[in-house]
């Protein structure tokens, strides 16, 4: 069994991922909906729509980096 400190570190890093993933999801939801709407009007916008949709993915990447840095504390 791991000690309490390591467990807390693990929970901390999980929170970093969970929070940023939810945030990215919320942001992508609205952008995705708008992008699909735009695409229905004008199909050529597929490329731009796709790019715009992944822009908030940075959030979850920052979350992942933070999670990794926190995990490093446990070592």
């Amino acid at each position: 069994m791991v000690d309490v400190g390591t467990g807390l570190v693990a929970i901390g890093s999980a929170v970093a991922i969970v929070g940023s993933a939810i945030a990215a999801g919320i942001a992508e939801k609205s952008i995705g909906a708008a992008a699909v709407g735009a695409m229905a009007e004008k199909e050529e916008l597929f490329g731009k729509g796709l790019i715009l949709t992944v822009i908030p993915e940075t959030l979850v990447i920052f979350g992942l980096v933070m999670a990794l840095l926190i995990l490093n504390l446990a070592k």
């Binding site: 993915e57 990447i61 920052f62 980096v65």
Partner: peptide
């Protein structure tokens, strides 16, 4: 910081 995706996506 955004370039850390180079690591994250790969990982």
């Amino acid at each position: 910081g955004s370039y850390s995706r180079l690591m994250a996506i790969g990982l």
